[in-house]
Amino acid sequence: MKFSSLVVPVVLAALAAADTLHYDNIYDDGSQSLDVVACSNGANGLETLGYTDFQSLPTFPYIGAFGAVLGWNSAECGSCWKIAYTNAAGKTTRIHALAVDHAGEGLINLSQEAMDKLTDGHAVEFGAVQVTATQVAKSACGIKK
Rank of each mutant, 00 (worst) to 15 (best):
M1W: 02
M1T: 15
M1D: 14
K2R: 11
K2L: 13
F3Q: 11
S4H: 02
S5P: 00
L6K: 03
V7S: 00
V7I: 15
V8L: 12
P9D: 00
V10K: 00
V11T: 08
A13C: 07
A14K: 07
A16L: 03
A17L: 07
A17S: 05
D19A: 01
L21K: 05
L21M: 06
Y23K: 12
D24K: 12
D24M: 06
I26R: 15
I26Q: 14
I26T: 14
Y27A: 02
D28S: 04
D28R: 14
G30T: 05
Q32T: 12
S33R: 13
S33L: 05
V36Q: 12
A43C: 00
N44F: 10
G45D: 12
E47Y: 04
L49S: 14
G50Y: 09
Y51R: 14
Y51L: 09
Y51M: 11
S56Y: 08
L57I: 13
L57F: 10
T59D: 07
F60A: 06
I63V: 15
I63M: 05
I63K: 11
A68E: 13
V69F: 09
L70T: 15
G71T: 10
W72Q: 09
W72A: 09
S74F: 13
S74C: 03
G78E: 05
G78R: 13
S79A: 09
W81Q: 08
K82C: 00
A84T: 02
T86G: 01
N87V: 00
G90W: 15
T93F: 06
R94M: 05
I95T: 05
I95D: 07
I95S: 03
H96Q: 06
A97H: 06
A97E: 04
L98S: 07
L98P: 08
D101M: 03
D101W: 10
H102W: 03
A103E: 10
A103H: 11
E105I: 04
I108E: 04
L110W: 13
A114T: 05
D116N: 15
D116S: 03
D116H: 10
K117E: 13
K117T: 07
T119K: 09
D120L: 03
G121I: 02
H122E: 07
A123H: 10
E125A: 08
G127E: 01
V131L: 04
V131D: 03
T132N: 03
A133C: 01
T134F: 01
Q135H: 08
Q135K: 13
V136T: 11
A137D: 10
K138D: 12
S139K: 12
S139L: 14
A140E: 12
C141H: 11
G142W: 14
G142D: 13
G142V: 14
I143V: 15
I143S: 12
I143R: 15
K145V: 15
